[in-house]
Each structure stands twice: as structure tokens, then as C-alpha cells.
Amino acid sequence: MNPQALARSRDFDHRGRAWYADRAVTVFVFIGGTSAILFIGGIFAFIAREGLGFVFTEFDAGEFFGSIAWRPTSALDATYGALALIVGTASITGLAMVVSIPFSLAAAVFIGEFARGRVRETLKVLVELLAAIPSVVWGFIGFSIMNSLIIDIFDVPIGLNVLNAGIILGLMAAPIMTTIAEDALKAVPDGYREAAEALGATRWQVIRKVVIPAAKNGLVAAVLLGVGRGFGETMVVLMASGHSINLPDSVFDSVRALTATIAAELGETAVGSDHFRALFTLGILLFLVTFAINLAADIIMRGIRRKGERGRP
């Protein structure tokens, strides 16, 4: 064998800098990647430890889901009925979705399908800016501006209610939904649009018959992520909902939300007390619902990706 080739095959056992760098990066990204699992597991274990203690002792499912009496501080007879809180969260989130879904889907279709050039870029930047507004600012708008608007327009005594929190939360969730929905529309190949327009379809026909069906999964995922966002939001619902325990008869009633209850009460409870642990039980409920919503969104998104791989671009 010639000496040069011999020298080079000796390299087969020599680990140079590139080899170690590769190993180091592999380990680093592995830790980064798997830490997500660790955090999710850790958070759930922590909430469960505090909350489940309550679930197995004081917890009464009939009371928790069936009673509106959330009286954790009553010295004689503390009750933990979360029904009003659940209904409060559900009604605010529900109204928020009624506001945000049509709004953001329309915005996404306009930005993605109709707007061109400068207009489109400007709108996209604006929507992203809107998404970046801190929730306390939205809460402030609800507390001051929306409050007096509702009182003036509807002639009701108080403007901090389901209507207020729902609208503010809807406006807050809309930019995120718009951005994700617009991404879903953008993922539809231009060839589809061109082919459909060549058939003589109008722009709206192209959108309705081709683009929206092709982007359907992404649009559903956008809505679900918006729902998840609204469901877990705290500051807006604390500031704009009126924060009073109540089964609402109309959108003009004040309510109290799960998240807001935890945020407002946790600081005043003794660590380890029944009240403290009951709040963690609310946390478990929130965690499970948000987890389910996100999981659903994720499964649906995966669905699109897999389909996209099979079909041609």
C-alpha cells in the first residue's frame, strides 16, 4: 500500500475537533429538545401534588362542578363550588370566539388573498404588533374605555361584564389567529389558485372552492390555538369581567373566571391550606383543558403536513 494512503487510513481512529464539536452540539440540542418534556412533566407533577391532595380529601365532585358557592374563606363552612367560575370562563371564551373567529378569518383571507405588495406587508406588521400588545394593556382598555362605552350604549349600570371581557379577549386573540390562519393560506401552492382562475373562477370562488378546503386543517388549528389562548388568559378577564361570582343570565352580567380567581386569591392563602390546594385543583382543570385543545390543534396540524408530503407542491 502506498504510504500516503496508509497515513490517511490512520485518521480512521483519530477524533479531531470536528468530531468533538459534532458530539457536543448533538448533546446540547438533545438536552434542549427533551427539556420540553421535562418541563411539562415537572409542571404537571407540581400542580398535581398540590391539587390532587385536595382532590383526594376535601374534594366533592358534586359540589365542585355543581355548586356556585365558591366560599373558600368562610371560617365555619368553606365551600368550593367552581361552577360559576367554569361558566364564567366558558362564557367569556365563547363570546371571544364569536368575536374573533369571523374577524380573524376575514383578516387572514384579505391579507393572504386580496392585499398586494405594500398594503399586505404593512397589514402583516400591524397584526404582529397587535399580537404583541401586553394583556394588561388590553385589560386596561376593557376597564376604562369599554366599560364606559358599554354603560353609555346599552344603558346598563355596570360595564364590566361578559360582553366587555369577551370583546376584549376576542380582539386580543384575533391577531394570533389571523397570523396562523394566514400562514395556513400561504401554504396553499399558488399553482392551485392559478389553475382555478384559469378555469374562469372568480376570486371568491377560488378561495371558497380551492384555497379554504386546502387550508382547512391549518384554519381549524388557528381557531383552536386562539381558543386555548383565550381560555388561559388571566389579566384581561380579571380586569374586564367584573370579577364577581355569578351565573350570568345575559352578557351584561358580571362573572368571574378560573384564571382570574387563581391570580387574585393565591397570594392571600396559606401555603398548604385547603384554599391553597383548591386553587391548584382549578389549575389542574385549566391545564387539562388547555392541554386537550393544544393537542387537538397539533394533531390537526400534523394531518396537514402529512397530506402535504404526499401530494405534490
Binding site: V188, P189, G191, A196, E197, A198, V210, R312
Partner: peptide, 26 residues
């Protein structure tokens, strides 16, 4: 006007529809 002009592109663009719906769309 476009509906009276058929176009076939260099690479086939199968719309994300069934075979039947691709032809029934127009």
C-alpha cells in the same frame, strides 16, 4: 373570458380535490 379558454400547465396542477371534483369544478 377565461372560462372559454382552457389552459394546461407544464407541470400538472391537480387541484386538492378528488378526480371527479377536479373535472366537475368548471
Amino acid at each position: 373570458l377565461r372560462s372559454r379558454i382552457g389552459v394546461v400547465f407544464p407541470l400538472p396542477v391537480g387541484l386538492p380535490l378528488t378526480v371527479y371534483e377536479n373535472v366537475a369544478l368548471a
